[in-house]
Design a protein around this nucleic acid. Sequence first.
DNA 1: TATAAATAGGATAAATTTATCCTAAATAAA
DNA 2: TTTATTTAGGATAAATTTATCCTATTTATA
Lengths: 144, 144
Amino acid sequence: MFSKACEYGIKAAIFIAVNSSENNRVSPKEISEEIDSPQAFTAKILQALVRNHVIKSVRGAHGGFEIAKDKIATTKLSEIVYAIDGDGIYKGCGLGLHTCNENHPCPVHDKFKVVREELREMLENTSLEQLALDIKAGVSFLKI
Amino acid sequence: MFSKACEYGIKAAIFIAVNSSENNRVSPKEISEEIDSPQAFTAKILQALVRNHVIKSVRGAHGGFEIAKDKIATTKLSEIVYAIDGDGIYKGCGLGLHTCNENHPCPVHDKFKVVREELREMLENTSLEQLALDIKAGVSFLKI
DNA sequence: TATAAATAGGATAAATTTATCCTAAATAAA
DNA sequence: TTTATTTAGGATAAATTTATCCTATTTATA
């Protein structure tokens, strides 16, 4: 469904949110250990999230990655996915047609629309805060 | 969502169904022209569909690919997807966790379940026949 | 039986995604 | 101001997916 990069990005963002809520900056090393991902590759993904203003980075000693506390509640999964995988999940034809719309639909156009709409809604209505709270409460997990 | 191979496979199967309903065998060349896909690569995908008994191939002169007429109505999209992409779309964690279930869920486990269930149902309830009829009626399209 | 027409399938190449490594730039603190 | 620490980012490699090419095998028919 999502690219590996996107999976890492989502998990990283959640881990950063958990830590930022406790005024704690984290490094790519900590992150990759905590979400079980390759460190250098994860660092690249973090760069993308910074460029897209999903998270903030602080360079130099005592630096690291963080999310502004008030941003944790307003940041939706959709923003993270968009920053890494783009809008291909919503936009674009399920069967790869160049042109696929109501007037010129691919064979699964209508049926796909329903599923994708559901996915879009889910991503747009799920905040980093909800996901981070579950991790803090120990009812969901970032690895294994 | 699906791999390129799977997109080609679905479109090829629909085109074969359309032709088989008119007692017409088709070649990889015709198929790839009609669905706008690379011919040799499409041929490989057709092999996979044959191995998985989704379609039938007839070798030699006057050969080609076909689907038994009575199979067109009973074949579901899910069988095609499974033959090419496997069951990764239903099974497997949305965030790539090795173990992800009710007792040890990833952060998006419950939310993802809903979307994937919807996708699964759609694929399992959509027959080749429905899709082929739309193509024949000219209300949906396999390319452009 | 020989020939032409088709699919099967192995080998290989190109493109993309995933992953690693190394150096540059920024920053806090000694 | 120097040093240690930390992210940024370019270059490169490995793995996977997508795509091509060539030959083997099968089959109808002349």
